[in-house]
Design a protein around this nucleic acid. Structure first.
Lengths: 222, 222
DNA sequence: GCATATTCGATAGTAATACTATTATATTTG
DNA sequence: CAAATATAATAGTATTACTATCGAATATGC
């Protein structure tokens, strides 16, 4: 996968000017990931990003309408990237059970290596997804933005893995609920491990999140 | 429970002046719940709340340092209230299995009736918890605030139900992970049902969230 | 290679937000 | 009735989240 140099296309409504099309745009993405990771989404502003980029904030506004849309752009990219990994890891694997286990692995394991398929640091981005991604859809504008397809790449991931669940047990009633519980739960548990440890039993650096959710899925669908 | 007129005490570091001690303070709580429910936490400001209360915003600042602390106050109240319900529903029930099932019921069922044990509308508050509560701890100040005990009532709920899990299966490795997955998952699924339905299989008004998580817990701990 | 878009930097400006401070008046309490 | 407390009214500040304009640099199209 390392040298495929895949290209991830993002819903064009998520940007005013495609950041992928210019060096500055790519820099906006790369530096915004670093800055959000460092200071958090609330404290993140286009002004601060502009200082990092040596560009006025008005230039950033030419690419993204506001920081909320930028966050949705970043999460869309992340889920498209995850879907790519899911496809790559499951093609040519006949056993649906093996495909499911591999998928859960991808969804629950920490992202530790920056594959450098692009100017995007996936390790930092995955940390942002854990800490901040729910803020992209916990807003008053969620219905409107959902209609415009802003969350499509996330839905694709849930749908894809749900289909494997149904291959194993066609009569299972709650495949989407199960998979979105796994995805969101794995994020939560990693966040808890770092910040609210009494809400979990896992510790950073262990694989108990994967162990827990793998076991959960196996038990629940049989 | 209706007429017990219970009194919920909140960590005194969460307010500058106890809102429970004055009529205005109680009004601040009551109206802030209505306003956050209506316009969402991002758009909610003390200025707008002041207009609703016919009080200048500076008065509200005498009770709460800022809107973030007010949100933590509201979530603390909610979890203390939930814990009270857990205790009430499980005392004198010998069977740990029955206690667990009852607890999951309380944690996953929608809050439909305002018990009016106080000036707080629990139905609206529970909606705020579903939509906004994660914002209270997904901040850069979470570690510092956790040290001050701001999230204690939530932890108490997780701890209490985890102990029931261990009564049933003392060797189960992940009781806290299981219970926090149930609590957060149930909120997520209700939110998805309303706003991102393709991420779930439940519909508003059904009890499939309770069904799913009850089954999940039973399967996983046996 | 020259005109013409396009892009970007520089600067300015605005409305709203998130507070803080001060003073005067009203109300409670001892 | 005095003293303490609470609140209303007002003013003010730094920051945020944008929008607008203009001119210089760069790329592209013929």
């Amino acid at each position: 996968m390392k040298n495929l140099n895949i290209h991830i296309e993002i819903n064009s409504e998520l940007y005013s000017k495609n950041p992928d099309s210019t060096e500055l745009g790519q820099n906006i993405i790369a530096k915004s990931i670093e800055l959000i990771y460092e200071i958090g989404f609330e404290a993140f502003t286009f002004k601060k990003l502009g200082i990092l980029l040596n560009s006025p904030e008005s230039t950033i506004y030419r690419y993204f309408k506001n920081k909320h849309i930028l966050l949705i752009y970043l999460t869309s990219w992340y889920w498209a990237w995850i879907e790519y990994q899911l496809v790559f890891a499951t093609t040519n694997v006949d056993s649906p059970r093996k495909r499911l286990l591999k998928s859960i692995d991808i969804l629950t394991k920490p992202v530790l290596i920056d594959n450098s398929i692009s100017y995007i640091n996936e390790v930092l981005l995955s940390q942002i997804i854990i800490s901040e991604s729910m803020k992209s859809y916990h807003t008053k504008s969620v219905d409107e933005e959902n209609k415009k397809g802003y969350f499509q790449t996330y839905k694709n991931v849930v749908q894809r893995v749900s289909e494997i669940v149904l291959e194993i047990n066609a009569s299972y009633k709650f495949p989407h609920m199960l998979i979105s519980t796994v995805i969101e739960g794995a994020h939560q548990q990693k966040y808890f491990a770092e910040h609210l440890p009494s809400l979990t039993d896992t510790k950073k650096g262990t694989n108990s999140v994967t162990e827990f959710y793998t076991n959960m899925v196996i038990q629940v669908i049989k």
